[in-house]
Nucleic acid binder design. Structure first.
Lengths: 143, 143
DNA sequence: CCTAAAATCATACTTTCGTTTGATGTCAAA
DNA sequence: TTTGACATCAAACGAAAGTATGATTTTAGG
């Protein structure tokens, strides 16, 4: 971002310098002030458009890097005891895209019970929505 | 395209008119020609940048580079063209646990727009909920 | 036996999500 | 210029999800 600003400034400076040169050129004697101003304006307009368009180009991630796995393998840091078995069960259903009602049906409990579980999960994970819970759970390797 | 040119021309005309007004203003008496030219230049530069940025909506791939695939082989760019860039962007925010309103805020669009995107995503993935969309997207290696 | 944690359920309420319909502007390609 | 894909936005409604509070029942451990 800093580079962009610097480049931008440099280009502007160059443009201004060019304008100054123009100022003393023979053109100044032949063209009216209005025409001269117009040329300057159009030139800068073009420069501006160019710059504006140029800095919209997309960058793409192109490289990756391999790393060694820890000798023991990627064993789970499993947060033992954070969530209860039932809560984990519910969480897995959520990850599977099931609605609370569907979870209630498959677990043979009421919708309210599922809501209680989900809210307990949110509380323990420190989140407010099921999608956040999934994200957090993955970070914690709970899923 | 024609419209764009017309608008562009109109704006340029307005800018030139403004410049003409400036020309006869008191500023002309107080500022050196150089300073005057500079102001004109900067103004048009700004206008140009504005116009350039405004018409940047469509993104274009400008360069690419070949790389070796990881030994294990990463499943290719499956499902090319299933979701649009914008839809993928929204999907990633959903995966991050963001609410529609939050997504709207970070993308600087309205809540309704985000809802439209999400619904289009659901339609394309053949799902009905965001959590299902996440599950399906992972199966399709879209995330 | 007693207790704390876990699991169950409820009611009432707020918020977010999802659906539908319709519209406008832009861009690329035909 | 016409057309189709994209992105944008709106309004209104129903469906889920989430919050808050309180309660009862199981169950595992001390």
């Amino acid at each position: 971002m800093l580079k962009t600003i610097i480049k931008f400034g440099a280009l502007t400076g160059l443009a201004l310098a060019a304008a100054k040169m123009l100022e003393v050129s023979y053109l100044a004697d032949r063209l009216s002030l209005k025409a001269y101003i117009s040329i300057i304006g159009i030139a800068f307009l073009a420069l501006g458009v160019f710059l504006g368009l140029k800095h919209r180009r997309r960058k793409v991630l192109v490289s990756y890097k391999e790393v060694d796995l820890p000798p023991g393998g990627m064993a789970a840091p499993l947060q033992e005891g954070l969530l209860t078995e039932r809560e984990l069960e519910v969480l897995r259903h959520i990850a599977g895209g099931r609605s609370n009602q569907e979870i209630a049906d498959t677990l043979f409990v009421s919708l309210n019970t599922v809501k209680t579980h989900t809210n307990n999960i949110y509380g323990k994970l420190g989140v407010k929505r099921r999608t956040q819970a999934l994200d957090k759970a993955r970070q914690l390797k709970l899923l």
